[in-house]
């Protein structure tokens, strides 16, 4: 680890200015991913700007009945907060299915969104990786790629985004608030992360010095149900092979609103727009769920070790929709 300066930012303006001014400064929040990367040598910043003292740690209702989640709210606090448990159950479930209690006590909203892939080649600095060292090649493309992407990948990178929280936020139509020294902007959660293309070293559309300050969730109309299901190799404390976040509303016997996102399949939370289109206005039944999932996954391109993810994703989506329908009709 090379030596670095440490600065505890007292206000948002000075935090973004500090990172913008120093070419190799980075924000530090909970540190559960960044501190590990410092040890592994994946990143070598010259300055850490600690944002955990900024007044971004609140969860507040918005005037439209939605929720504003501060960027430094800890994952455990968010999962346990009454409005999230009562109104955005998928988000609470997603958070609780991620990491361990100790990690959730440190990890923040902003940091969770910006955590990096757990691709073992990315994390092992002796192997080629276009995400870590652009232009060196992708070791996973023809390596061990059981956990890798089947949707939206490129020959440059087949990594997946590891977050559960972001998948729920993508299905819930969350919006990310971002601040720089010049301006503030909002980005839909679904557009925050990029597909790898030729620039897999860029995980997100954020520019240098931009700081996530909050995530807004719009209100859910009466009668809307949400769920999150995660499939993994052990029952707890493991990343998703496949996960599904779903929002469902049924009116007069047909699907009135449906929003779906997959985790574990792509370089970003994968909003399943094709499946949603097939389901909107349809009668909620098994065959329709399967057909919608198959339509979404028709563009999937498996690697040598991960073809299993395609039927797994189809079945998981079907199971989540079946469970939600049962709940809606109860």
């Amino acid at each position: 680890m090379i030596p670095f300066e440490y600065r505890r930012a007292e206000d948002t303006d000075s935090a973004v200015a500090a990172v913008e001014e120093a070419p190799r400064a980075v924000f530090l929040a909970g540190g559960t991913n960044l501190v590990d990367h410092l040890k592994l040598g994946i990143t070598a910043p010259e300055e850490l700007v600690d944002v955990t003292a900024l007044p971004l740690d609140t969860i507040e209702s918005t005037p439209d009945g939605g929720l504003r989640i501060g960027a430094t709210v800890r994952n455990s606090d968010l999962a346990a907060s009454p409005p999230v448990r009562e109104r955005y159950r998928a988000l609470s479930l997603a958070l609780l299915s991620g990491a361990s209690a100790q990690l959730r006590n440190r990890a923040t909203t902003g940091g969770n969104l910006l955590q990096r892939t757990r691709c073992p080649y990315f994390q092992e600095v002796t192997t080629p990786c276009n995400k870590r060292s652009p232009g060196t090649g992708c070791s996973a493309l023809h390596g061990h790629n059981k956990n890798h992407a089947v949707l939206g990948a490129s020959d440059s990178c087949v990594a997946t985004h590891p977050s559960d929280m972001a998948v729920a936020m993508a299905a819930l139509d969350g919006t990310v608030h971002v601040r720089s020294s010049r301006d503030e902007r909002t980005i839909p959660v679904t557009e925050l992360h990029r597909l790898p293309g030729e620039q897999p070293h860029r995980d997100t559309v954020l520019e240098r010095g931009e700081l996530i300050t909050a995530v807004d969730l719009p209100p859910l109309p009466e009668g809307t149900y949400t769920a999150y299901r995660k499939v993994r190799e052990r029952a707890s404390y493991a990343f998703a092979l496949v996960s599904v976040a779903a929002v469902l509303r049924v009116a007069n016997g047909v699907i009135d609103d449906v929003r779906l996102a997959f985790g574990g399949l792509a370089h970003k939370p994968w909003r399943a727009g094709t499946a949603e289109e097939r389901l909107r206005g349809a009668i909620p039944e098994e065959a329709t769920f399967r057909e919608a999932a198959e339509a979404e996954l028709s563009v999937a391109r498996p690697l040598a070790d991960n073809a299993f993810k395609i039927p797994l994703a189809r079945n998981t989506l079907g199971a989540v929709l079946r469970d939600l329908t049962t709940e809606v009709l109860r």
């Binding site: 440490y6 505890r8 530090l28 540190g31 559960t32 501190v35 590990d36 040890k39 592994l40 850490l48 600690d50 955990t52 455990s76 361990s100 209690a101 100790q102 990690l103 006590n105 440190r106």
Partner: peptide, 26 residues
């Protein structure tokens, strides 16, 4: 030493955390 095993768990301001992933300066 990478936040995977929990052997370093301490209570920091009353909450359980992994001491291996927390910088002392913070």
């Amino acid at each position: 030493d990478h936040g995977q095993c929990g052997a370093c768990t301490v209570l920091l301001d009353g909450r359980r955390v992994l001491a291996c992933l927390v910088l002392a300066v913070t």
